[in-house]
Design a protein around this nucleic acid. Structure first.
Ligand SMILES: [Mn+2]
Ligand SMILES: [Mn+2]
Ligand SMILES: [Zn+2]
Ligand SMILES: [Zn+2]
Lengths: 143, 143
DNA sequence: TAAACTAATTATAACAATTATAATTTAAGA
DNA sequence: TCTTAAATTATAATTGTTATAATTAGTTTA
């Protein structure tokens, strides 16, 4: 696939070694249309890599984040989720089942500017998520 | 103080017992102009309550959240922060020192509506934070 | 291609934030 | 004051993640 090739190219350019584990983690991230946790990835690959350490998954996700290949979505108690970076988008999250769905919206530059102006902060970026109930969970609700 | 009185009244109305610990935690939350962690609160009150358990702090913060008195701000690895609920506002967070500063901005209803329309979710609320560097940290930077 | 160098992986332990458990204490109403 | 359910305490358990140190394996260089 094209995205995988480009990702491997990015690793090569930044001097990050390409190992079978990294290849497999990237491949999984790109192909899974979801937003997996480190443990999801670990479990999904344990057939192919029975000896892979969970630390390897975490280490490599951090490397991928550092070179800009993935975004880490962090939440309170729950485990972090990882998103292979394509175009800029936001997420809507189901409070019932935890599903995360992408949606596109122009960046909130105005909010960043106002925050900067009002607080004197040098603003770098922002985080925005919408919470609600997904169609599947809504239809399952008692009525 | 007025806010404390109202908060205690809310507890009474919802049938939540008012204990010295709860009184002190609420008082601390209202008076501290910051966004303390559970441990901040625990440490701040250990003079007055040498035997208070950290579980009590967590339990009561959960109770306060459930009756709508406080908001819990959750982050990835770092510990949660708690904000006594006054008016609706957003936060700008310093990536260097962790400081959290309030700022006001009209709610992002349009984003919620678009997300709902595009994904079919029943939308309840959203989360938005701006990240950057606070004036103090900016002036400390090497140049 | 082989050796050398260094980064990556593994196994394991440690950590930190939070929650569960069970015994004891206490707030609030009768 | 008595009663009772709720709250607190002390402690252990849990969970997600990171640190450590020994081993393995990419990549470079000769
Ligand atoms: Mn996404
Ligand atoms: Mn606030
Ligand atoms: Zn759902
Ligand atoms: Zn700062």
């Amino acid at each position: 696939m094209n995205q995988l090739k480009e990702a491997l190219e990015t690793l090569k350019e930044t001097g990050v070694r390409i190992t079978p584990q990294r290849h497999a983690i990237l491949e999984y991230l790109i192909n899974s249309m979801s937003h997996p946790t480190a443990d999801d990835i670990y479990k999904a690959l344990e057939g192919k890599f029975p000896n892979m350490s969970v630390a390897t998954v975490y280490n490599n996700l951090r490397v991928f984040r550092e070179v800009g290949l993935v975004k880490e979505l962090t939440y309170g108690d729950a485990s972090a989720r990882f998103d292979f970076v394509t175009s800029h988008h936001y997420h809507v999250i189901c409070e019932s089942c935890g599903k995360i769905v992408d949606f596109h919206y122009p960046g909130l530059n105005e909010v960043e500017q106002l925050a900067s102006h009002v607080t004197g902060f040098k603003v770098n970026n922002h985080r925005m998520e919408v919470y609600g109930t997904c169609p599947e969970c809504t239809s399952k609700e008692v009525h």
